[in-house]
């Protein structure tokens, strides 16, 4: 469909449709013959040089860390810090290969994961909608915000005695602590995201006929998503911190309890194993959230 107004202008030789393609024109012209494997490999190397370098250095530095750990423990170095009783990496590996066949160890991990899942999910299910509603309705914000601000600075661990009193079972109080730890970062970041929504986008939606509910769903919510996911990531981290502390204090099972128990039973290798397990679980759950974020926000990925 050509435009009559433009056709009549001889000096306007560029038709409207051509203007679009004039933008980011594909610069690469395909060569006549397909490039050889060598050329492709070389190109791939050039394009990913930076990333390869980072990976190589990363692996090297991890190996160096293991080596230093190994040396410090084999020679039982005492230099302000005492490595006398610290297990060596090999000892930890030995206890790891034993533990993965031990149903009790797996149960500890599974229980911790379940507590995180329940506590964190509850925090997200309550925190995100509450933050959205508080960000949109001033009255709700005015009522809830002061209470939240008073409770927020209290670390979740400080809630342990109170939680034990509040909840009938130990399990429930631990989940409650985990919930509290992740709830406030999620709420605060959601609120922050709501406060940063560009008012011009709201106007744009309004003059396209959007009403309150659509504006909420189509503008406020997606606009806040990046901050919501920041809140979820931070919340997940704090959830693990709170969970481990709660398990160490009042638990009977869980990876935090496992680590503490290892200390009481003088199973030094298991202490390090517990710590590493916690680290890996924390990293894994963060990666899960990041992956979910990329799925939910395709416009943010490059």
């Amino acid at each position: 469909m050509s435009s009559p107004a433009l056709v009549r202008h001889p000096e306007y030789s560029m038709p409207v449709t051509a203007i679009a393609e004039a933008g980011p024109a594909p610069a690469v012209t395909p060569p006549a013959t397909p490039p050889s494997f060598g050329t492709l490999a070389l190109r791939w190397y050039r394009l990913n040089q930076g990333r390869l370098r980072a990976t190589a250095i990363g692996i090297a530095s991890l190996l160096a860390f293991l080596l230093v750990w190994h040396l410090l423990t084999t020679y039982r170095v005492v230099f302000f810090v005492r490595f006398t009783n610290v297990p060596s990496p090999l000892a930890v590996y030995a206890s790891f290969s034993k533990a993965i066949h031990d149903p009790k160890f797996l149960m500890h991990i599974l229980l911790s994961c379940r507590r995180i899942f329940i506590g964190f999910s509850l925090a997200a299910i309550i925190g995100v909608p509450l933050g959205l509603i508080m960000g949109r309705f001033k009255l709700v914000h005015e009522i809830i915000f002061p209470v939240a601000e008073v409770l927020r600075p209290i670390p979740a661990i400080a809630w342990v005695p109170m939680a034990i009193m509040l909840w009938p079972t130990n399990e429930q109080s631990i989940v409650f602590i985990t919930f509290l730890g992740s709830f406030f970062p999620i709420l605060v970041n959601t609120l922050h995201g709501m406060s940063l929504v560009d008012p011009v986008l709201v106007r744009a939606a309004q003059c396209l006929g959007a009403r309150e509910r659509s504006i909420f769903r189509e503008v406020y919510f997606p606009a806040s998503l990046p901050h919501i996911f920041t809140g979820l990531t931070v919340g997940m981290g704090v959830a693990w911190v709170s969970l481990i502390a709660a398990e160490m204090i009042s638990g009977q099972y869980g990876i935090g309890y496992f680590t503490w128990e290892a200390y009481s039973l003088v199973q030094y290798a298991d202490i390090a194993l517990g710590m590493i397990a916690i680290g890996v679980l924390g990293l894994g759950s963060s990666l899960l959230i990041r992956g979910a974020g990329q799925l939910v926000m395709p416009w943010r990925s490059t």
């Binding site: 560009d198 986008l201 106007r203 744009a204 939606a205 189509e218 503008v219 998503l225 926000m297 416009w299």
Partner: peptide, 11 residues
């Protein structure tokens, strides 16, 4: 309405 800042929905 057309705005100076384009104001397209990024998502």
């Amino acid at each position: 309405m057309v705005f100076q800042q384009y104001s397209l929905f990024p998502w």
